[in-house]
Each structure stands twice: as C-alpha cells, then as structure tokens.
Design a protein around this nucleic acid. Structure first.
Lengths: 340, 340
DNA sequence: CTGAAAGCGCTAACAA
DNA sequence: TTGTTAGCGCTTTCAG
C-alpha cells in the first residue's frame, strides 16, 4: 500500500506537504497541490487510518456493547446506531456480552484499549460499576435504556418503563381483566431486571383496587422458552389468569405458544401483552398487543448524545422516551364466565 | 492513560524491557519482571492497541459487511461472526450497505483504510467487482453466501441454493401440488437475486412434468411488504395457485398476511413455503415451512476461513453448505376441489 | 509556500 | 538480562 512518503517522492515534495495538500489545511500552491493529488491517485494512495489515529488521538470509532446482537431487539438497535454513527463519519465496533458480567467487563476494557472514542452501553452483562469504572477513565460512555435510573451513569438515553407498565395495566383494566398475571425477567428470588415495567403495572392495578396477586408473578430470562415455561405454569393453575403480561415480546411469544399447546384460545380465553414491539410482534399468531419503544429514535438520541459529548459539548440526559401501547389481536375482554 | 514509558520509568527500566516483560517474549529477570508487572498494575497500564497495530501491522479486527443488520437474517449472521471472531481475539467492525452499491464500495474502502485484517462480504450492496478490487489489493476477503458462484471471489463460504430450491419442489410435489407460484427477489425484467433457489425448484418441477408456469412467477425485493403485494396479486388470479414458494421468509410471511387478508386459509387452501429459516419463521401464523440454513455453521465456516487465511494458510473454499427442509404448519395437500 | 523535525505508543533487532 | 536505536504512517509546529 502506498504511503504518504511514496506520494511525496513521486510528486517531488515532502510528506508534510502531501499531508497539507490532501487535508486541505494550510495553503499549498495550486500547481503542486494538483501534482500531489494526481500522484496520490496514480499510486492509489489511501491514508492509513491507524497511523492517523495514533497521532490524532482519535479513531472515529465508537463501541456498542449489547447483550446479544442476534436478539431482534438489539439488531434493530445496532442498525440505528450504525446509521447514525456513519452519517457522522464514525464506524461501530460491536460486542456481545451474552449476559456474562465478566465478559462484559473485558469487552469494555478491550474497547478502551482499542481507543474507541466513546461507547454506548446497553444493559445486560454490564455491571453498573464496570460502566462507571470506564467512565471514570475519561472515556465518554452513554448508558442507554438502563432500567435503573442511575444518575451516576450519565449521560443516559432512557425509556420511561414505568409509564410503559402503566399503559399495560390501563389497557387490561379497560378491557375488564382483574386476574392478571405477569411473566417478568428476573430470578425468582433476585432482582427484577424488568422492575419498572412491573412496578408501573402494579401501581395502576393497586390504584384500581385490584392489586397484583404475587402468586401470579412468574419469572423468566427474557427468552422465548422461558416465557413458554412460565406461561404453561400459569395456565395450569386451578383458576388461571385471564390475562398475562410478559415484560418482553420474546417471552410473550412464548406465552402464546404455551396457550396454543394448552388448547387455550388467544385472545378469547386469554389476553397476552408483550413489551418492546420487536419486529416479530406484528407477525405472531395472533399478532401481539405490546408496548412500543421507538428504537430508531432512542438510539439516534443515544448516538447523538455520545457524538456531541465527543465534540466536547457538555451534554445532559434528555427526558426519557415515552413508550406507547400498540393494540393488536392478542387482547380482548375476558370471557363472561371466567370473571373472578 | 499510562503508557509503557510511564511504567518503564516507575520500574526503573526501559520501555523495551517493559514490552518484553509484558508480552512474555524474550527472557526477563524474574524480579524485574515482577516489579514491572506491579508498576503496570499500579499505574493501571493498558496497552494502546492502536499504537501496537501500527507497528505490528495488524489490527486484530475484521470487517463484516452486510445488507442490513436490522434484517433478522443478518442479525443471526452477525452474532455468529462476532462469537467466532472474539474467540480468536478479533473484534468485528460492522457495516451496512443498505443495498446501495456505491455505499458498499465506500464502506469497503474505509474498512481497508482502517486496516482491518480481513473482511467477510455478504451479498447485497456489494458489486462483485468491488469485492474483487479489494481482494486484488491483497486484503483477505471471504465472500459468503453469494448466489453467483463466482470462482474469482474466493475463498468463499457457499450455500447450495440449488439444492434448497429442489427441496421445496419435492416437498410440494409430494404433497400433490401442481399449480405452484413463486415470489422471488429480483426486478421483473432484471436479474433474479435468488436465481438458484428458483432454478432448483424449476428443475424438479420440469422433471416431474409440471413445469413452472412463468405467469405464476412474481417479484419482490425480499421485504415482507413486497411479499404481501405479490401474494395479493397471485391470490387475486382467476385460478389462484395452491402453493406459493417465496424465496425468503420475510416475503413468505408477507404472503401469509396477504392470504389472511384475502380470507384464504393456510395451509388448507394455500400452502406457503419460505427460505432461510429465520427466527421469525417458527412463530408466524401458522408457523412457516421453510428451507433451513444453518447460519451459525455457515458463518463459523466463513470466519474460520478468513482467520486461517490471515494466519497465512492457503485456504480453499469448502463444499457448499447443504440446506434442509423444515416442515411446519404452512403446507398441506391441496384441497381436492382445487386441483388443476 | 515548502521542508525539517519531532512525536503519537509500541515492538524488534542488535548491542552491551 | 537489559538498553539503544530505529521505525510503523501520519500530523503539526516552526523555520526557511
């Protein structure tokens, strides 16, 4: 590969001049500049961006660390980030944590070692301390979509999950459901990963005088399979719920499968609500009623936040993104006979 | 950030020694090594991988360029590549062409300028010449899943699409269908992007004495919407087909939607077959019969091929991956009354 | 307007 | 066993 020295030699000038001519900075004689440009073209000169990064101390690369890029939710996220970053001349280095905190920590360190200019950190496999530790290093990092509204993780692009949970409760209540179950991500005895989504639902339910029956709170790990398992358990109860809220669409799809296996018709005998509105949600059987999160807007915000921070601007977290309910065919009023 | 010089100074040695001690190469006195390690730790030394890349002339980064990473198919692809690459100490730089040849070309150039060690090129927005041009540069590049079996694009990880198309025809024929339509990606009057998938089907159909009726060959652009449009057109015909083969799952899902809109029951009145077996396929209504491509295996092969080429090995393309048919609920024998 | 020189952080001969 | 020196390719003062 031709270097700047090759071009310099061919044009009969020095490397510094070539650099100036190519970058357009400083003033270079029209003729020598033309000659340099010509030589560069002839030699198919392409700047070595690694060398440039070393001197410029910036790589024009940002890191995006997600739980699992094969997950449809994160695929949409990745797309949005790549688009937005590219438009600003940045490229994106992706990393999957696979939910492994230790891996997540390593990945973050590696990104830092590779001198990415900044990183966008999505929850899952990234302990908050790890994010904080990297941030303390001076590496700009924006937390995106974290359920815990940790002010020290700033700036952050947030989603109002609480409002999302409320939306679900209001919808189900309006339909006439009272025996509502939830399948949430979190270990049975541990922290609820989707804490706020459930809390929002709980608040509204309690306010309506029909508090959530904790016996109807099941746990999954965000996978379709876990949703199917929890759904089966719930549906096998002596008096099964008339509606199930799964805290993400994958689990909701699992619930749909469990209902099908149990011979229970959705939405006639059971209403199901998901969360996220991934692409799949519109095409399940029946199409899923769910809480829509505008991933393109969210990630554009996050990327923009990061890019602005990179350019030295003092940025602060924008207001959280408000989700909206999208009603499809998986919810309906409960059957008259099945009311409590 | 602490550099190797800071560590050297702290440990009272020279940078070269630190480098040796840290890399484990050469022989360093046990004590000085221990001292160096300690200083490095104290100073939270992290090697600057950009600097290292410059001297080592390798970045331990590979580029992956796909059509659109938001597309569920490519999301699975990306996941597999990232996994495989990481395990070998490589990181992945993603790029979306969005089907734009010009963009694809630029992206490839940029990846080269960033000195990626190699790239995996998936079809879509990447003109073969562009791939060839980059390969001519000396940059290892493996073409993956290209429909055109271009021997100059080697090494390549291929899929036997022809066999896949045959599988579909055999399945449909065995079920008793004769009036089979296809929705393929490609402009009406242009090249068929999914050429081989259709050819495979055609071969078998012709061999069985029921050649494909070209009036039943519709075109889409691989999107769900295009599949729905083509499906609607097909279903509105005076004598609609009893089976539709869409050359990818997204379009097949669109066909499913079109059938639902037209009040046509699947699989009773219409059989639908897709191609790819993306995650969505198992969860549509009804679940889609489709041709399965093992993306994890395919991409592991592609990545491995690239990595081996990087280590100087003379690699050659492995035999194409054989797809398999996965029967789900969208296909069944045609209704007695609707036979031709 | 152009050249000389230094430096980004690290590695790799080759000496000592 | 450790230090010296040079160099990876580029940018950026500072002289000339």
């Amino acid at each position: 590969m031709a270097t700047i020295y090759d071009v310099a030699e061919a044009a009969g000038v020095t490397a510094a001049t070539v650099s100036l001519a190519l970058s357009g900075k400083g003033v270079v004689n029209r003729e020598t500049r033309a000659r340099i440009l010509q030589c560069a073209k002839d030699l198919r000169y392409r700047p070595n961006l690694v060398a440039r990064s070393l001197t410029m101390r910036q790589t024009h690369t940002i890191g995006l660390v997600v739980l699992n890029i094969g997950n449809p939710f994160y695929a949409e996220v990745a797309l949005a980030v790549e688009r937005e970053a590219r438009r600003a001349g940045y490229r994106v280095l992706f990393a999957n944590t696979d939910g492994d905190d230790e891996l997540g920590r390593e990945l973050l360190e590696d990104l830092a070692a590779r001198q990415v200019d900044g990183v966008i950190a999505m929850p899952g496999g990234l302990p908050p301390e790890a994010v904080r530790a990297i941030a303390a290093t001076g590496l700009p990092i924006v937390a995106c979509m974290w359920e815990e509204q940790d002010p020290t993780l700033s700036p952050a692009a947030e989603v109002d999950f609480l409002a999302g949970g409320r939306l679900v409760a209001e919808h189900l209540l309006a339909l006439g459901h009272t025996r509502i179950a939830v399948v949430a991500d979190g270990r049975p005895d541990g922290t609820l990963q989707h804490h706020l989504r459930v809390t929002g639902l709980r608040e509204v339910l309690a306010g309506a005088g029909t508090p959530l029956d904790t016996a109807l709170l099941c746990h999954g790990d965000s996978s379709l399979e876990s949703g199917a398992g929890a759904g089966a358990t719930l549906l096998a109860r002596p008096t099964p719920p008339t509606a199930i809220f799964a805290t993400n669409d994958l689990m909701a799809t699992g619930v749909l499968a469990a209902a099908r296996d149990a011979g229970i018709r959705v939405p006639d005998e059971l209403s199901v609500v998901g969360f996220d509105d991934i692409f799949l949600a519109a095409h399940t059987a029946p199409p899923l009623t769910t809480v829509h999160i505008d991933k393109a807007v969210l990630m554009a915000t996050a990327t923009d936040l990061l890019l602005r921070a990179l350019s030295g601007e003092a940025v602060s977290s924008p207001p959280p993104l408000l989700p909206s309910l999208v009603r499809r065919a998986s919810t309906a009023p409960p059957l008259a006979g099945s009311a409590t």
